[in-house]
Amino acid sequence: MMAQTRSGGPSESEPANGGNGNGNGGSGDSPELWGDGGLVGDGRYRLTHRLGRGGMAEVFAAEDVRLGRTVAVKLLRSDLAEDPVSKARFTREAQSVAGLNHHAVVAVYDSGEDVIGGSTVPYIVMELVEGRTIRDLLIESEPPPPDQALIIVSGVLEALAYSHHHGIVHRDIKPANVIITNTGAVKVMDFGIARALHGAQSTMTQTGMVMGTPQYLSPEQALGKTVDTRSDLYATGCLLYELLAHRPPFTGESPLSVVYQHVQDIPVPPSRVSDAVPPELDGLVMRSLAKDPDDRFQSAEEMRGLAQYALQMLTEHGGHTGAWDTGTVAMAGAAPVAGTTAMMPAGGGDTSQIPAPLLGPPR
């Protein structure tokens, strides 16, 4: 079972007790084999145990000996420390999140570089979050009820509205990058490929590679076109689709086949994938997955407003009633089905708290 303690990454981490270490100056799980004898930041942060590891980084729980608090320390793998692309991505995460101060964004406290095993290795010190990622929850539990799916997505959109207003596009929203804390709060993490909005060309290509995760990649990301906030809304639509239908909107035998579908194919509405999904939610999901960014929601606030409206209607009227909807649904080879959409004000209050029990018991 996955470790219950999570922090700001890595986004595709393995169990904290699984396997041997593969970088950052050591070959095991013992803290003294990591960092500089178990210390990072000129001795300020004492590593206590590993939380997880991924393709780029290792994350440890640590004690901030100066302030006497527990934090998470993310270390770039030492074998990537000399790779300029990996190092730039890692450093950009610290720079992107350093200016963000919001309850729905995993906070960055500090960053820097240490010389570890002869290599200059960057590190990020983050808020330590107790909880599980949506990825873990989807693996371990049944799909959440539609109302909880809407609450989760509202929390993600609240974080995105804040980051977008501060000029930051996340560019990698996916289940592994969203945490439900043990108190039921929603937090977004891993701004590792985030990019500032200012500048004429904010594209998703880097050294010829598309940056992002195939199952949640917007068409413009897949094509290497200029990316803006609406790409995050597309990825959030993919996340909502998976929360409702327990599968992403597109699947395939290879990443390339999935990317092709994002560009070319119209997804099946989630209510046609699972009978448990109220068809009233199809409009919300399908609009967020429009191929043309101009056909999507134009801001996180706008999408969140409709998600909150849907949550209110589900609470008051239930689903599968035909008494309300969230907009038109475009079907492959068919004319859009008209709907009468009411909108809640975008402010709408804080709906980013998941009521207990948390998405059902583990399987």
Rank of each mutant, 00 (worst) to 15 (best):
residue 323 A to R: 13
residue 326 T to H: 02
residue 308 Q to W: 01
residue 307 A to N: 08
residue 313 M to T: 08
residue 328 T to W: 13
residue 323 A to N: 07
residue 281 L to A: 05
residue 291 K to N: 14
residue 278 P to R: 02
residue 277 V to F: 15
residue 316 E to I: 01
residue 314 L to P: 04
residue 291 K to F: 10
residue 296 R to S: 08
residue 302 E to H: 11
residue 286 M to W: 03
residue 334 A to W: 06
residue 294 D to T: 13
residue 319 G to D: 06
residue 323 A to M: 03
residue 312 Q to V: 14
residue 315 T to W: 07
residue 281 L to Y: 09
residue 327 G to L: 10
residue 327 G to K: 03
residue 300 A to H: 12
residue 292 D to R: 15
residue 308 Q to C: 14
residue 335 A to P: 00
residue 337 V to A: 10
residue 334 A to Y: 11
residue 313 M to Y: 00
residue 275 D to R: 14
residue 294 D to S: 14
residue 286 M to H: 04
residue 273 V to N: 04
residue 335 A to K: 03
residue 294 D to E: 13
residue 274 S to W: 12
residue 274 S to C: 12
residue 330 A to F: 06
residue 315 T to N: 10
residue 274 S to R: 15
residue 323 A to F: 00
residue 306 L to I: 07
residue 320 H to G: 07
residue 280 E to M: 03
residue 280 E to D: 09
residue 308 Q to N: 13
residue 300 A to C: 10
residue 281 L to C: 07
residue 282 D to M: 05
residue 283 G to Q: 09
residue 280 E to R: 03
residue 321 T to M: 12
residue 316 E to F: 00
residue 323 A to V: 00
residue 287 R to H: 10
residue 288 S to L: 15
residue 324 W to K: 10
residue 290 A to C: 15
residue 307 A to F: 09
residue 332 A to G: 01
residue 277 V to T: 13
residue 289 L to N: 04
residue 322 G to C: 10
residue 317 H to S: 10
residue 323 A to H: 05
residue 301 E to F: 15
residue 303 M to I: 02
residue 337 V to H: 09
residue 297 F to Y: 15
residue 275 D to Q: 13
residue 285 V to M: 08
residue 288 S to K: 06
residue 273 V to L: 08
residue 303 M to Y: 15
residue 334 A to M: 13
residue 284 L to I: 07
residue 333 G to F: 11
residue 273 V to D: 09
residue 312 Q to A: 12
residue 283 G to I: 11
residue 299 S to V: 05
residue 307 A to G: 10
residue 325 D to T: 08
residue 305 G to H: 07
residue 327 G to F: 11
residue 296 R to A: 08
residue 311 L to T: 05
residue 297 F to P: 00
residue 304 R to F: 05
residue 301 E to V: 01
residue 328 T to R: 14
residue 291 K to E: 01
residue 306 L to A: 02
residue 290 A to I: 04
residue 337 V to P: 06
residue 329 V to D: 14
residue 293 P to T: 13
residue 316 E to G: 02
residue 304 R to Q: 13
residue 279 P to A: 03
residue 311 L to D: 09
residue 274 S to K: 14
residue 299 S to T: 14
residue 337 V to I: 07
residue 307 A to R: 05
residue 280 E to I: 02
residue 334 A to C: 04
residue 278 P to A: 03
residue 292 D to G: 05
residue 295 D to L: 03
residue 321 T to K: 04
residue 275 D to W: 06
residue 273 V to K: 06
residue 277 V to S: 09
residue 305 G to M: 04
residue 303 M to V: 02
residue 292 D to S: 12
residue 309 Y to G: 09
residue 317 H to A: 07
residue 327 G to V: 09
residue 307 A to C: 14
residue 334 A to I: 02
residue 330 A to V: 02
